[in-house]
Simulated assay, not measured.
Amino acid sequence: MNRMPTGRRERRSFGEAIVLERTFAAPIDDVWAAVTEPERPERWIGTWAGDPTSGQVAFRMTAEGADVPAVTVHIDDCAPPHLLRARIEVADPPGQEWRWELHLTHHAGVTTLRFVQAAAGDVPVSDVGPGWEYYLDRLVAAESGQDVASVDFERDYHPAMSGYYRDLFACPVGAMSALRGRSGCRRLTRSTWSTYLGVVEVTVQEAKTHLSRLLRKVEAGESIVIRRGSQRIAVLSPAPPPVGDRRIWGDLAGAIPDDFDDIPDDFAAYR
């Protein structure tokens, strides 16, 4: 399955942001519980411990592995069941915090969750965008009774969506009007996205970090373009078959009969 990226770029009070939305045929209180109670998020992303009234909790992203260390989440604003604003400490680079927000609304039996992730500074949007697409789709699967394990990160999200998010934030701040090709920016449409489905593009760093995943894609017949900045510098593609399995010049030696050049008798009239 090739999933389409859904994130968009918006300007918020704190700067540039990735914005994603998901909808649920469920009461707003139920969706709020699915993302805030300590047990329910473990079905799709992780769990937390501590006293939220203190302004912070310890969060473990158990979906990444049982031994993933806890990180501190600072709660800046919480207004159940509509709004949660928080900052999460990240290890790389040290001392950095990622700001994100959850907004929930309900209308006509449908709850809409809007997730906002700050994208300023050193936030690697080509990794973060696909990552949140993946986890929010796991949330949808968990809440709709689907198989969460069927949401496949390597197959459908990263690096498949990395190029979309890289291009989405390639324009300078304030240059969004240039998306039609001016100032080196590129308009991202569904037809543009279709190009990413055929050839995956990754940076040199992404290639180093996810080499095993990329090689599995190559073994499945895909080609991977590696870029340094905006310049394409290499291609990972399937190796040709062994020489013994290929036709080469001269491999029919001895198989051509001696009378190959003779004209058959029934063609005599055409001589």
Rank of each mutant, 00 (worst) to 15 (best):
I45N: 00
W132Y: 03
Q146H: 13
G229L: 07
T105G: 10
M1C: 08
E133G: 04
S126H: 05
V202F: 06
L20R: 00
E101T: 03
Q117D: 06
D92K: 06
G46M: 00
S237R: 15
V68T: 11
D30N: 02
V73T: 04
V125P: 04
E37L: 05
Q231A: 12
Q117C: 11
R166F: 04
M1G: 06
Y165M: 11
T209N: 08
R180D: 15
V116P: 09
D152F: 11
D251R: 01
Y164T: 00
T112P: 00
Q205I: 02
G131T: 12
T192R: 13
D147L: 11
S194T: 06
A178M: 13
S150R: 01
S191C: 15
F14A: 04
D127V: 06
Q205R: 02
R9H: 02
G55W: 04
D266T: 10
D122I: 12
K208H: 10
Q56D: 07
V125R: 07
D77F: 10
Q205F: 03
V35H: 04
A79W: 09
Y157C: 08
P130I: 00
A79S: 08
G109S: 01
P52T: 01
A25G: 01
E64D: 14
C78R: 04
C185Q: 03
W98P: 10
A34I: 11
E16S: 07
D67G: 00
H158Q: 00
R155M: 13
A239K: 14
V31Q: 09
F153H: 15
D261T: 15
L136K: 00
R228G: 10
P38A: 04
Y134A: 11
V116M: 09
T23S: 03
P172Q: 14
E97H: 13
G184N: 09
E222S: 06
R99Q: 00
W44N: 01
F267S: 14
P81D: 01
E64F: 15
G221N: 03
P94V: 05
Y164A: 06
P264N: 12
V68C: 08
R114H: 05
G121S: 12
A79E: 11
Q117P: 03
C171F: 07
N2E: 11
D137H: 01
L139V: 03
A149E: 07
G7Y: 04
S230L: 11
P52L: 08
V173L: 13
I263D: 14
I18C: 09
G198P: 09
T6R: 06
R213A: 09
P38M: 07
G244F: 02
V148C: 06
A170C: 09
S237Q: 13
P38C: 04
S177F: 03
E222D: 11
F267K: 15
T195H: 01
T112S: 02
D258C: 14
E219M: 12
D92M: 05
E201V: 02
S54T: 14
P241I: 15
S183D: 15
S177N: 14
G254F: 03
S162H: 13
A108C: 03
G254E: 03
E222C: 12
